Deep mutational scan, measured.
Amino acid sequence: TLFEALYDYEARTEDDLSFHKGEKFQILNSSEGDWWEVRSLTTGETGYIPSPYLA
């Protein structure tokens, strides 16, 4: 399933992933509550992002 970022986000820890509004992601793991592990389709990087920032 693909999701798109609604807002920009700046990583706060080394496990987080910074991203920009409009960036698209593949969800790798959504079992961690509000923090999902994703792969950016723009950069190929993986990390955790806050799920409320996605649509």
Rank of each mutant, 00 (worst) to 15 (best):
T1I: 12
T1V: 12
T1R: 11
L2E: 07
L2I: 15
L2T: 10
L2G: 14
L2S: 07
L2A: 05
F3C: 09
F3Y: 13
F3W: 15
F3P: 01
E4Y: 09
E4C: 13
E4Q: 09
E4R: 01
E4W: 09
E4S: 04
E4H: 08
A5W: 04
A5H: 04
A5T: 04
A5L: 06
A5E: 04
A5Q: 01
L6A: 07
L6N: 06
L6I: 09
L6E: 11
Y7K: 05
Y7E: 05
Y7Q: 15
Y7D: 08
Y7W: 12
Y7H: 06
Y7P: 00
D8F: 03
D8V: 02
D8Y: 03
D8S: 07
D8A: 05
Y9V: 02
Y9I: 04
Y9E: 01
E10Q: 12
E10M: 09
E10D: 14
E10K: 08
A11L: 12
A11Y: 02
A11S: 13
A11C: 06
A11H: 05
A11G: 10
A11Q: 10
A11M: 03
R12M: 13
R12G: 09
R12I: 12
R12V: 13
R12L: 10
T13F: 15
T13W: 15
T13M: 10
T13H: 14
T13E: 08
T13K: 13
T13Y: 15
T13R: 14
E14N: 13
E14Y: 07
E14K: 11
E14S: 12
E14W: 08
E14H: 10
E14R: 08
D15R: 15
D15F: 15
D15L: 13
D15A: 12
D15I: 14
D15M: 14
D16C: 13
D16G: 15
D16Y: 13
D16T: 14
D16S: 14
D16W: 11
D16I: 12
L17W: 05
L17G: 15
L17I: 12
L17F: 13
L17K: 02
L17A: 02
S18L: 05
S18H: 05
S18N: 03
S18C: 04
S18D: 03
S18T: 08
F19C: 05
F19T: 03
F19S: 02
F19H: 03
F19Y: 07
F19Q: 01
H20K: 14
H20L: 11
H20M: 11
H20E: 07
H20A: 11
K21W: 03
K21R: 09
K21F: 11
K21N: 03
K21M: 06
K21A: 09
K21Y: 05
K21D: 03
K21E: 04
K21T: 09
G22I: 01
G22K: 00
G22P: 01
G22Y: 11
G22C: 04
G22Q: 01
G22F: 08
E23D: 15
E23A: 03
E23W: 13
E23Q: 05
E23R: 00
K24N: 03
K24M: 14
K24D: 00
K24Q: 10
K24T: 07
F25W: 01
F25M: 03
F25N: 00
F25K: 00
F25R: 07
F25I: 01
F25Q: 01
F25G: 00
Q26T: 09
Q26R: 04
Q26H: 08
Q26K: 05
Q26I: 15
Q26A: 07
I27S: 00
I27R: 04
I27D: 00
L28M: 05
L28F: 02
L28P: 01
L28H: 01
N29W: 06
N29V: 07
N29A: 09
N29I: 14
N29H: 11
N29M: 05
N29G: 09
S30L: 07
S30R: 12
S30K: 12
S30V: 10
S30I: 12
S30N: 12
S30E: 09
S31D: 12
S31R: 09
S31V: 09
S31G: 10
S31T: 13
S31N: 11
E32S: 13
E32N: 15
E32V: 10
E32K: 13
E32H: 14
E32I: 13
E32D: 13
E32Y: 13
E32P: 08
E32Q: 14
E32T: 12
G33Y: 09
G33H: 11
G33W: 10
G33R: 12
G33D: 11
G33T: 11
G33L: 09
G33C: 11
G33M: 08
D34L: 13
D34K: 12
D34V: 08
D34P: 08
D34G: 11
D34R: 04
D34T: 07
D34E: 10
D34F: 14
W35Q: 05
W35K: 09
W35E: 04
W35D: 04
W35G: 01
W35T: 11
W36H: 01
W36P: 00
W36C: 04
W36A: 00
W36I: 05
W36V: 05
W36K: 00
W36M: 08
E37I: 10
E37V: 09
E37W: 13
E37S: 02
E37Q: 10
E37T: 10
E37P: 01
V38L: 02
V38M: 01
V38R: 00
V38E: 00
V38S: 00
V38D: 03
V38N: 00
R39L: 14
R39V: 12
R39P: 03
R39Y: 10
R39F: 06
R39H: 05
R39E: 07
S40Y: 02
S40K: 12
S40R: 13
S40G: 04
S40N: 14
L41W: 07
L41A: 15
L41H: 06
L41P: 04
L41N: 01
L41F: 11
L41Q: 06
L41V: 09
T42Y: 08
T42Q: 10
T42S: 11
T42H: 09
T42N: 06
T42M: 09
T43A: 00
T43N: 04
T43F: 08
T43S: 09
T43D: 01
T43L: 00
T43I: 01
G44W: 03
G44M: 05
G44T: 00
G44H: 04
E45H: 09
E45D: 07
E45S: 07
E45Y: 07
E45L: 14
E45T: 13
T46H: 09
T46E: 06
T46S: 05
T46N: 04
T46I: 12
T46Y: 06
G47K: 06
G47E: 05
G47W: 07
G47C: 09
G47M: 06
G47I: 06
G47T: 10
Y48F: 12
Y48R: 14
Y48A: 02
Y48P: 00
Y48Q: 06
Y48S: 04
I49R: 02
I49E: 00
I49T: 02
I49G: 11
I49S: 00
P50R: 10
P50L: 11
P50H: 13
P50V: 03
P50T: 03
P50K: 10
P50Y: 15
P50G: 02
P50C: 12
S51E: 02
S51P: 10
S51L: 04
S51A: 14
S51G: 11
S51R: 10
S51Y: 09
S51N: 15
P52T: 15
P52H: 15
P52S: 15
P52G: 15
P52R: 15
P52F: 15
P52A: 15
Y53W: 10
Y53I: 08
Y53R: 03
Y53F: 11
Y53C: 11
Y53K: 07
Y53G: 06
Y53T: 08
L54F: 09
L54T: 06
L54A: 09
L54H: 07
L54R: 05
L54W: 08
A55I: 13
A55F: 10
A55V: 14
A55G: 10
A55Q: 14
